[in-house]
Design a protein around this nucleic acid. Sequence first.
DNA 1: CCGTATCCTAAAGGATACTG
DNA 2: CAGTATCCTTTAGGATACGG
Lengths: 154, 154
Amino acid sequence: MEEGTSQSLGSPADTAGHRSDYDVWQWDAREDCEVRQILDRVADKWSLLAIALLDRRSLRFTELKREIDGISQRMLTRTLRHLERDGLVERTVHPVVPPRVDYALTPLGRTLHATIKSLVVWTEAHQEEIARARADYDKREADLRETSAAGAAD
Amino acid sequence: MEEGTSQSLGSPADTAGHRSDYDVWQWDAREDCEVRQILDRVADKWSLLAIALLDRRSLRFTELKREIDGISQRMLTRTLRHLERDGLVERTVHPVVPPRVDYALTPLGRTLHATIKSLVVWTEAHQEEIARARADYDKREADLRETSAAGAAD
DNA sequence: CCGTATCCTAAAGGATACTG
DNA sequence: CAGTATCCTTTAGGATACGG
């Protein structure tokens, strides 16, 4: 792993004695860069769930619809099409009637799922810490409002 | 009830000889569960960028605004407040005039960044594969439209 | 300098109805 | 069964103006 290659943003950077080993701007969140797109794909409302389910076993459309209870037909179709386009999911149409369509994770999809899982694991490991942080923040906020209200009342 | 509450989705599961080691439904994407919230936080338009920048060194409001060129004041404030509330970023107000406010990643924020980074690394490693998949998909789509158009014209 | 408040637009996504 | 097509609501987020 190289230290910053295209350093960009003329920042002195290393001042904190700590540094990212990639260039932040290479995956600038606003651009249509790959990371942004993958992140959007992974993070959208239903993709992650579909990926996780398909990582267990392949499923057909209706099965997915039933398992991801609450998703609309429209969104399930869109989600699956996006995943398919990105090469994460494979769609197999069986020429029978009534139609049967199977969805399965590709090898690429499986490696992505493995990666996402580390984020899930992180969250599970730290959820209490986060909950505490939120409670503290909200408490401080409430105290602040109370104080300023009291101050205004004086 | 569907079979299986925690083990859930009555899937014999292992059929593919492969299985996730967590319960998909514990982090059901639709609920206000922790994973969903963290994922939303991480994936929203600006958070990731802010986190990555702050992982290098602490920055003040205006510096962040300048570095994340394109972000509105409104969204920068909101983004930072959310990160602060979750205990990922620490906000330090210096009681001077004009005001000076420094933002820094907390230890928790740093570990999150490290985790996110693995997703970034995954994306960088597979972006060409994804690009190919998309090109293939679009090609097939185009061919299909062409064919059906020709068929209709006949 | 560091915000908050207000207004406004674009996009995501649900509900519903229809089709091969 | 496995989708499209259409309409409608909700939300994210930009622009702008103002305040401590």
